[in-house]
Every structure is written in C-alpha cells, then in structure tokens.
Amino acid sequence: MEDIKLEIKDLHMKYATKVAIEKMNLELTPGIYGLLGPNGAGKSTLMNIITDNLKATSGEILYGGENIVSMGSAFRRLIGYMPQQQGMYDQFSAKRFLQYVSAIKGVPKKQAKEQIEKYLQMVGLDHVAGSRLGSFSGGMRQRIMFAATMLGEPKVFLFDEPTAGLDPEERIKIRNYISKISGDSIVILATHVVSDVECIADKIILMNGGNIIKNETPHELIRGVEDKVFEMKCTTEDIERLNDTYKKGNIRQGKDGLYFRVVADEKPEGFETIKGEANLEDVYLYYF
C-alpha cells in the first residue's frame, strides 16, 4: 500500500531580509488540514515550495520518504494544486481547458474523458462545458479550477484561498466539494477565513510570521480558549470606543442586542466570561 505521508523537515525560506518560513517541521497523513493564518503568514509560500514553484533556502520536503524535488514530475503527478489566482485561458471553453489540464497532467485519454465529465457534473457546470471561460462568473471560474485540480485523482491536494471573492453560497459549495474528496488523500487548505475549515478540517495548523503556532484538532484548539472568551453588551455608539480600546474584538448580534466579544488571558473590566460558546473564530482572534 502506498505510503501517503508528507514530511516537512526544517524548512526555511528567506527572501532577502524577510523570513517567510522559519524552520518548519510538519508531518501530514491522509486527512484535511486547515492552514489558517493572516495575510503574510507564509501559507502561500509553503504551497509554492510544496509545488516546487519556489526553492526553499534550506530544509526538505519528503513524500513517502523521498525528497519531492528529486522526485520531480513523479511527485507533481500526485498533486492537485488550486492557486490563489484564478488562472485560466479565457479563450478556451471549459471543456477544452480541462482537456488541456488533463494533457499537462498526463492523464490517459479515456480516463480524462470520464473524469472531465464526472467533475464537471460534480461542480454543476456540465451544461456550460462548451462556453468560453471568459464569460464565466467568479464563482464559476473557481469551480472550474476546482475541477481542474481534481483531474488525475491526485493524492495531495493544495487549495490556496479557494473561496476568495466568492459569495456565501459558492463558499459552501467549495467547502462541500473539498469535504467529499478527502478519502485517502492529504488535503491542505490554506485560508484566512475560519468558516472555510471549521467544519471540515481534521486538523488546524495555525501559522503566523512563518512559524507554526499550533497544530491541533479544532476541538483541542477551541478547548484551549474556552475560558478566555469574554463578552460585553454594547450599543452602536460604544463600538468605536471598544475597538479603539481592545484593538481585536468581534461584534455579535444577540437576541437582545449587540455584544462585543474579546478573547484574552485575563477578563477585561465590564466583561462577562462566556463558557462553552467558544469557536474557531475565537481561536483565530486569540492567536492573531
């Protein structure tokens, strides 16, 4: 049986004076990993190193015990990468673009035909397969990119901000597609949007400034901030003052009015402790 394991060992990436990834060590086995962090945390850099778009300053990444750089195209045959930018040829039709992607992924013709039909149906775009990509909306383009990522049935999926710019309905669709595919694959979903991963990820990797802060299950992370969540009832006039005072806070619309929510080690004055209602957003607020 194939040993599906991605090991990141002492990975270090430095751009001139800026350190993008700081001595990272990580072991990934089949499952969905949410890579959560703010802009500039190093998520895309990690993706680019895994896909060999960037050369790391030091360290290595192993797949099945073998260095992915020396594996070359053999490793790239196993990955499905959905980059942050919606890159596709506008003049191609949806079907032609997927055929093109099949060709560059080296998918045999018969399999490619079956997979293209299957994934177009899966993403609900089979009725516009012959239309030009230039005429597609943002959500449709993202779904085509998703279908393109699936082609070749990779073992390692890399989704870089897959829901960027999409409306809530499209976001849910993408999330649902990702949750279907995990199976025996490694799925890395890099995002700064908590809702993208909170329901589907087996583990959440919190990343900031090139470092991994936490690598735990959602449940463990939430438990970690359970007693650190505080709320205060407020009015709209209070919000500006509270934001100035606490910098990072969340506003919640409750049944009886607005609530200002902070996550901190100590309870601020005037706030009430909220027990049992912590969520992943609170985790995000706490660590970032």
Binding site: N48, T51, Y81
Partner: peptide
C-alpha cells in the same frame, strides 16, 4: 492569465 504557477505544479 496567471497560469504560470499552476502549470509548473503539473507533471508535464
């Protein structure tokens, strides 16, 4: 068309 990275991540 921002396809550079995507292409480089494929075997061919």
């Amino acid at each position: 068309y921002n396809l550079g990275r995507f292409l480089k991540a494929t075997p061919r």
